[in-house]
Design a protein around this nucleic acid. Structure first.
Lengths: 138, 138
DNA sequence: GTCCATGCAAACGATTTGCATGCGT
DNA sequence: ACGCATGCAAATCGTTTGCATGGAC
């Protein structure tokens, strides 16, 4: 039975990165909170490690990105966000509360749909859909 | 018969913005070049108006965005880009030469497709597709 | 002992703001 | 004459870098 920290530590070591407390907590925050920006990460990290430096946050986010452990999300009117979800999915954004949720799709189905529309071989995609979530419909 | 400047000037005045030379040329550059960043705009504007200030570029880009005349494009690994195209379309990005082209779609068809997949009423979308363009296939 | 990550401070780049000037109406 | 846009400089914000320290292997 692997603890959460063991699992996150393994994730890091598998890519040749040391499993420091800073990195474990950072990964944990991203996993739990979904789509977070640098500022949010820094604030949350400081709760556990009050001495953490903002440069450590930036440096680690970049390292984890390069290692393919986290991914940057670009959505207009949002700051760059980070997520641990590597598998292909699309984002659903509520136009009112701005909450972002992941929606898993059949990657091949999406690629096929757009290949047929564009008459080009689509290799990958970034898709954000805007809607009004249940809570905001009231 | 409207000249290009008349047309761009009207676009500005219709939204309550003055049609200054800086704004007319800025709009003209975005229209001609498609997806441009601030730096590119500034360099190109200086060719015609050598005294133009970078703050004028920033301020005008923001004003035109607020007025709905130009739109910001967010794509991972790209700086924020601006386009005059307001009508809904998707972006095709070559993974090799990074050239971006617009592809016009039937908005309703796209919304219907994703509404049926997600079981939610999709109101709008931001879609970027990655592919290998003809020139780069060699 | 070596390597790498950290925290701090300084540097840097991008963007915003305040203000004096000047143009267009 | 008035209001807004401009250009400049300074201020600010976000991000990166250099470096000394310290911990893990």
């Amino acid at each position: 039975m692997l603890t959460k920290n063991d699992r996150l530590g393994k994730k890091l070591k598998d890519r040749g990165l040391k499993a420091t407390p800073q990195r474990l907590i950072l990964l944990n925050i991203i996993e739990e909170c979904g789509h977070v920006d640098i500022e949010f990460l820094y604030k949350r990290l400081k709760e556990t490690i009050p001495t953490i430096s903002i440069s450590t946050v930036y440096n680690n986010v970049k390292k984890l990105q390069d290692a393919g452990i986290i991914k940057e999300v670009s959505i207009s009117a949002f700051k760059p966000l980070y997520e641990t979800n590597i598998s292909e999915h699309i984002h659903l954004v509520c136009i009112k509360c701005r909450k972002i949720i992941d929606f898993y799709v059949d990657k091949e189905e999406i690629k096929k749909f757009f290949s047929s529309i564009t008459k080009k071989e689509i290799l990958s995609f970034e898709i954000t859909l805007f809607y009004l979530c249940e809570e905001c419909k009231d």
